[in-house]
Design a binder for these strands. Structure first.
Lengths: 104, 104
DNA sequence: ATAATAGGCAACTAAATGGTTGCATGTCAA
DNA sequence: TTGACATGCAACCATTTAGTTGCCTATTAT
């Protein structure tokens, strides 16, 4: 879980996930295209995403195809976001009340 | 959004959010209690959480009370997680198919 | 066969990060 | 009013991170 959060913390990596979301199964060169980064930098980012299990790859000849794995993102939604969602309204009204009683 | 992701990337900060989720409105000293970190380290983490708008604070005499703001977490769920949720099943079966055709 | 293409590896750098220590300030209680 | 308590500020340090450059290897197409 920690690896996933860390992987998602970087905007370039989130952008890569977005690209894969738009078109799955891209090669490294595909993913580099138009980015203001060297191929090696992209490789590193993809390695981090792969280590976090957010991306799976298969070699196809000299090409490496990258596929999005949505499961870890889903898990973050399930185990983390929803927890804070549950009593969101309660927390918010509480927060509001406290902030307003600042001058009381 | 980037600040929120960065803030959530650290396990200590997520733990602080968990603590506030368990009991809202804690002081700095409260939050330090039992943690294996100096008070100053906790202060820094809280500052980052506050900058990301995940925590709101009010001074109450010499105490500083910390309140959880669930909105940014909710927004991540809305604008980010759900996007990948939508075609999760499609992506997964696609991924599975591709991985299996590895030897084809 | 050979040149071009796709990717991998390793060393290095600069900046960000997470943490520390030491001291200062503001507020409350005896 | 003075000591204790809650927090703030700043300098410093080690490690991690994001990125680079340079070179090497494997596969494909001519």
């Amino acid at each position: 879980m920690d690896e996933v959060f860390k992987a998602l913390a970087d905007a370039s990596r989130r952008a890569l996930l977005d690209r894969l979301h738009a078109r799955n199964g891209q090669t490294l060169s595909d993913l580099c295209d138009g980015l203001d980064m060297t191929r090696q930098a992209v490789t590193k980012h993809l390695a981090i995403l792969e280590a976090a299990n957010l991306v799976a790859t298969i070699r196809h000849g000299r090409e490496k195809l990258h596929y999005l794995n949505p499961v870890p993102i889903h898990q973050i939604g399930e185990r983390w976001i929803k927890k804070f969602e549950r009593d969101k309204l309660a927390a918010l009204s509480d927060l509001k009340r406290r902030l307003e009683s600042r001058d009381a």
